[in-house]
Simulated assay, not measured.
Amino acid sequence: MNELEKARKEIEAIDSQMASLYEQRMDAVRHVISYKMENNLPIYDKQREEKLIEKNRKYIKNPDYELYYVDFLKHVMENSKDFQRSLQSQDIVAYCGIKGAFAHMTCEKLFPQSHTMGLSSFEDVFDAVVQKRAQYGVIPFENTNSGLVGEVLDALNSYPVYILGAYNLKVEQCLLGLPEATLKDVEWVYSKDQALSQAKVFLQELNVKTVAYPNTALAAQYVALEKDIHKAAIGAKENAAFYGLKVLATHIEENNQNTTRFMVIGLEPSNQGDRFSLCLVIEHKAGSLAQIIDIIGKHGLNMQCIQSRPIKGRPFEYFFFIEFDGNLEDENVQHCLKEIRTICERVKVLGNYTLKED
């Protein structure tokens, strides 16, 4: 055994000891975060970290190693905080809106035992998952009447998340007003732009003015607070009970098969499911997309849908979202992906999942 082999063997023995000590340290971290959560304490304590670094650096006897050990300690502490955040976010599901929003109702259907976290934007939902303030996010992806939610697809393409599930929620849009109001009183209607679009024919017949709101539940809350019989909101009938309103009309959506597909997102991919999705950036030249479609067909894959979105910073160039039947671990899928990667600028795998129906 030469000197290199001896040194490597010694390092391997030390690594084995470090792994055991690491597990002991993380077991202690579990107790730390448990206490912090029970006593509503923050994960990050700047003063304590600074004191620990100053204290622990003195254990190093060789001055050549001291700065590297400080850097090592900082990485260990970041690792510990990241683990604490993951434990803190367990059983927390983030969505865009407030109580009564369709996303909130979907959360309660899919995660009846979990805590929900209402946020003000789709980006906030993605950020909460990435920053480990929530274990999952529930976001609307597409509606059978108003189409794709473009900003959600943009976020799926840019954030480091995976799709873990899909759920089709049958949407019944209702007109909600004050308890003393009638349809004849209504002059202004507030709701999410997609909801206004879904009820376009009804609203034209009612001859009212419309105002787009961030989501349906916020619109219902606004109408309740305004206490004006001339104002109404479009939303789920459940919002009437939540905000003390009256249902003035039901099934006002143009399409009686009105359905919104919600996606569940998380940080870790699933190996279970009978669907998977990709985001692709292909070369901006004639025949590029046709080449991709040919490869998909050659490997016997069925596309459920294909969508395109503009690439920010590259005018009139697009990335593509494709949903397939199958599982990423299937042999033909693996071969297809390998071939696609050779001709794409970028391939983002969004993971396996199963579609559930309302």
Rank of each mutant, 00 (worst) to 15 (best):
1 M>W: 09
2 N>D: 14
8 R>M: 07
9 K>D: 10
10 E>R: 03
12 E>F: 07
19 A>K: 06
23 E>G: 12
25 R>N: 13
27 D>W: 04
30 R>N: 15
30 R>W: 03
36 K>T: 14
38 E>N: 06
41 L>E: 15
42 P>W: 04
44 Y>P: 04
46 K>Y: 02
47 Q>N: 15
49 E>A: 12
52 L>P: 05
53 I>A: 03
55 K>C: 10
56 N>L: 11
57 R>A: 08
58 K>V: 10
62 N>Q: 07
62 N>H: 07
63 P>F: 01
69 Y>C: 01
73 L>P: 09
76 V>D: 01
79 N>W: 00
81 K>Y: 11
81 K>V: 15
85 R>C: 01
90 Q>D: 03
94 A>Q: 05
101 A>L: 02
102 F>S: 14
103 A>G: 15
105 M>C: 06
109 K>H: 04
109 K>Q: 09
120 S>P: 09
126 F>K: 07
128 A>I: 04
129 V>Q: 06
131 Q>C: 04
137 G>L: 09
146 S>H: 14
151 E>G: 06
152 V>I: 10
153 L>D: 01
155 A>T: 02
156 L>G: 12
159 Y>P: 00
165 G>N: 09
171 V>G: 03
171 V>R: 06
173 Q>C: 09
176 L>P: 14
190 Y>P: 00
190 Y>C: 10
198 Q>G: 02
208 V>W: 06
209 K>C: 13
210 T>D: 05
213 Y>K: 12
215 N>Q: 10
217 A>H: 13
229 I>M: 14
232 A>S: 07
233 A>F: 01
234 I>D: 00
235 G>S: 14
236 A>R: 07
237 K>T: 00
238 E>A: 06
244 G>H: 08
254 E>C: 13
254 E>L: 05
255 N>D: 14
258 N>S: 12
258 N>K: 07
260 T>V: 11
276 F>K: 04
276 F>N: 00
276 F>T: 05
281 V>Q: 13
287 G>I: 11
289 L>M: 09
290 A>W: 00
296 I>W: 00
296 I>P: 05
301 L>D: 02
302 N>E: 11
303 M>N: 09
306 I>L: 01
308 S>G: 03
309 R>K: 10
315 P>D: 07
319 F>D: 15
331 E>T: 14
336 C>T: 12
344 C>V: 02
350 L>F: 02
353 Y>R: 10
354 T>V: 05
355 L>C: 08
357 E>V: 06
